[in-house]
Structures are given as C-alpha cells and as structure tokens.
C-alpha cells in the first residue's frame, strides 16, 4: 500500500490535474490509461528515483506497462 501511495504522490507532483483520478488506480491498470504525456511520465519516474535514491535501467523501464509492474519494480528496488 505504501508503494501505491508513493506512486500516487509522484503523479500528483508532476501533474496536479490528475489528482482526482488517483482513486481509480489499480495494479492492473496500464500507466498510459492515466493520460500523462511522455514528459510528465518521465518526470514521475524522476520523482520516484529521487525518493528511492536509485536509477531504473532503460531496459527495465521499457518493460513496464501497469501500475502493478511499477509497484513491483519499486518494491524490488527497496529490498535490494
């Protein structure tokens, strides 16, 4: 749950207009369904990387489709 909240705070930080949609986010929802543009999407990644003090690799990023994928990436990073 903590991980999903972190993702939600990242989204609010890069695009406050999406705050009203945060309640709809489920692990199987595709990230692109949220309607962030490509720059805002990467800004969100930057926010997460800063909070987690890490960098995700390009190869890992391109394989991420859903919020669940992103959450498990974050959890793996935290455990590492």
């Amino acid at each position: 749950m903590e991980t999903m909240n972190l993702i939600k705070s990242a989204i609010s930080a890069v695009d406050p207009s999406k705050t009203s949609k945060l309640a709809n986010i489920r692990p199987d929802m595709e990230i692109r369904e949220l309607g962030l543009d490509s720059v805002a999407t990467m800004e969100m990644v930057g926010y997460l990387e800063e909070k987690l003090e890490t960098q995700f690799s390009d190869e890992v990023m391109i394989r991420i489709q859903t919020f669940g994928d992103l959450a498990s990436l974050i959890e793996n990073t935290r455990q590492a």
């Binding site: 595709e30 990230i31 692109r32 490509s38 999407t41 990467m42 390009d58 190869e59 990023m61 391109i62 394989r63 991420i64 489709q65 994928d69 992103l70």
Partner: peptide, 12 residues
C-alpha cells in the same frame, strides 16, 4: 533512438 518511456517495447 533508444526506448524513451514505459511499455512501448513492441512499437519501439
């Protein structure tokens, strides 16, 4: 161009 965003592996 390298991959630039999430989940577009096939298109890229």
């Amino acid at each position: 161009y390298p991959p630039l965003s999430f989940g577009k592996l096939d298109a890229w």
